[in-house]
Computed example of a mutant assay.
Amino acid sequence: MKEHYYTIGEVAKLSNLSVQTLRYYDQIDLFKPAYIDTFTNYRYYKGNQLFYLDIIKSLKYIGVTLDDIKKALRLTSEELLDFLAQQELRINEKISRLNEAKNTLLKTKKQLQEQIDIPVFGEIYVQIEEAMPVLQVTTTELTPTSSTSTYYATLIKIIEKEGSVLNSRYGCIYPLEPYKDVNDIIYDAIFTPLLTERTFSQLSPNIQQTIIPGGKYVCIAFIYDPDTYFSFYEKLRNHVLAQEELFESQVYELYMPATLTMEQEKKFIVELKIRQKQETQNSSEKVVAHSYNSQPELPN
């Protein structure tokens, strides 16, 4: 029985590939015709060759390079099975990275929305917050008027080394106490929120991966100014002292850029927050966080 041959045009239609692609596969020795007519220079293919073209298309679809496909076509069935198992692992890693990127995007959107939803600058407000994973470094000498760049840079290096995603926010923790002025406030730790769920290994003793607990927080937000910082702290502390509920003895301070545009002068929003104790939350009515549709006008 005479064997049937297909022209390059017929193979292009059967495989849903272009003639140019088939010619290129011939040039790189990936998929060559059964023979070439020396008089017309036309390419002809056998029917059983289409099976290998299906393999090429399948491997290319999952992201295998053409060079690796050439190697795969020379493998035994057992070797090809092992090769495909390796490709499955690679795809699963890609899926994991894409899911991480998606979760990072969602968390970033949530952070921006929370910033937009700050009800009034310089006034007390209440909000319910989810637990926030953070990477933090302990400190002993910094105040709200000090530069935190060195400590923040340490956290950045750790996050970058792990291949994780950086956050545009950072924060500090200090005790809730009756200070005399802003320079009496000494930070216990500096932290940055984590956008991924990765676990950081081999951290030095003064650095830890931890969680700022969720719950009901009493907050105040303002544009950072070392001359007015203490007045806002005092306003928040006095409000807490006047409440019947019990509050924890830590102040969480969060810095976030007021704008991401390079044209405007860089300003930072500071949000101070104090968490209501859990036993008080369980016995009180559910508090609904403030929700606003438009961004408040930033003070000059």
Rank of each mutant, 00 (worst) to 15 (best):
G9L: 08
Y6V: 08
L66S: 04
S77F: 05
D68N: 14
H4R: 14
T196F: 05
E245A: 15
Q115W: 03
I220Y: 07
D29H: 14
I91K: 09
S204F: 08
S96N: 14
L155G: 04
T210E: 04
P257Q: 10
D225G: 02
N206E: 10
R198F: 03
Q202W: 02
R90W: 06
E279Q: 11
G9F: 05
A221Q: 01
I220L: 11
V120L: 03
V126K: 12
E93M: 10
K161R: 11
P205Q: 04
E114A: 13
L75Y: 11
S231A: 15
K109E: 15
Y42M: 03
E10Q: 15
Q136Y: 04
I220E: 02
R169F: 03
K266W: 01
G47K: 10
D227Q: 13
N183P: 05
L142Y: 07
S284V: 05
R97F: 10
D181I: 04
A34C: 04
S249N: 15
K70M: 09
S146N: 13
I212L: 13
F83P: 00
A85L: 14
P296V: 06
I128S: 12
L17E: 07
K235P: 03
Y61E: 11
E123R: 04
D29P: 01
E129R: 14
E234R: 14
K266I: 09
K32A: 05
Q49Y: 01
K266N: 08
L260V: 08
E265K: 12
I56F: 00
D54H: 10
M1P: 11
S147P: 05
A85Q: 13
R237K: 15
H4P: 02
V11Y: 00
Y170T: 04
Q27H: 08
F230S: 10
E10W: 05
